[in-house]
């Protein structure tokens, strides 16, 4: 009976929202969004500070953000305050999980992992790590960035702990790494404030677009975000592997 009611309710809601979304003059139809009339047009042309120049890969120098990947430009440049908030969210959830688990070091007993897994993981592990680091460092040039790379590192760690069970208890340094990279991220912001006058402001020599060392502080920021995300995710995974302290 409850199911039928819920279904009925959701059907009407679906019908209503779809009619409203489709034929209201607010949302442009699917696929016809014009970038020009939205603020992301300046994010692409990187002319928030005013001077408008056409960007050619490999030539234009000292753009505002200077990152080839517009999304990274937004995430770590224009709206890096969101990302700071974002990192704190992840930090708190990791902290919360470890708080709830409590300070126990008894780990869940798990059966010995299969042969293929043990050998296979040894082979895949280096590839994973390299690609992860690559994604983090090339955040401003190619798709991906700190978060995605960090996730890859964490999955590498997960693979490792799945293959041999003693690995996870051996890692102690994650908490430190997490705290360190978070602090450095804020320090970068404060440095931006002292040097350039505004919190989290990028330095103005952002190099030529498309090169490795371009887009000012953005790659540095993304590097630390990558490390932080990696360590936090591994921390959460390790916490889930722990056995509950009998409170």
């Amino acid at each position: 009976m409850k199911k039928v009611l819920a279904l009925l309710l959701l059907a009407t809601l679906a019908f209503m929202t779809i009619t409203l979304v489709v034929d209201n003059n607010l949302l442009p139809d699917f696929g016809e969004t014009k970038v020009e009339n939205s603020v992301s047009d300046t994010y692409i042309k990187q002319n928030a500070m005013g001077e408008n120049q056409d960007i050619k890969f490999g030539e234009t120098k000292n753009l505002e953000i200077g990152s080839a990947n517009a999304i990274t430009g937004i995430v770590a440049g224009y709206r890096s305050f969101d990302t700071l908030g974002e990192v704190t969210v992840l930090f708190i959830s990791a902290l919360g999980v470890s708080l709830m688990i409590g300070t126990t070091d008894s780990w869940m007993k798990r059966s010995q992992s299969g042969f293929i897994l043990r050998v296979g993981s040894k082979a895949i592990l280096p590839i994973l790590m390299i690609v992860g680091v690559y994604i983090i460092t090339h955040g401003h040039l190619s798709p991906g960035g700190g978060f995605q790379g960090g996730a890859m590192i964490a999955s590498a760690m997960l693979l490792l702990s799945l293959s041999d069970h003693e690995f996870m208890p051996k890692i102690k340094a994650f908490k430190m790494l997490e705290g360190l990279s978070g602090t450095i991220y804020i320090l970068i912001g404060l440095v931006g404030m002292i040097l350039m006058g505004h919190f989290l402001q990028n330095i103005d020599q952002t190099g030529t677009i498309g090169e490795l060392f371009s887009a000012g502080l953005i790659p540095v920021v993304y590097l630390f975000i990558g490390l932080k995300v990696g360590s936090e995710l591994t921390g959460i995974i390790s916490d889930f592997m722990k056995k509950e302290a009998n409170i």
Binding site: Y78, R79, H198
Partner: peptide, 13 residues
């Protein structure tokens, strides 16, 4: 109003 990242109102936070 405090501009974060130095960008003007509609662009920065």
């Amino acid at each position: 109003t405090y501009l974060i990242g130095g960008f003007e109102r509609p662009f920065g936070i």
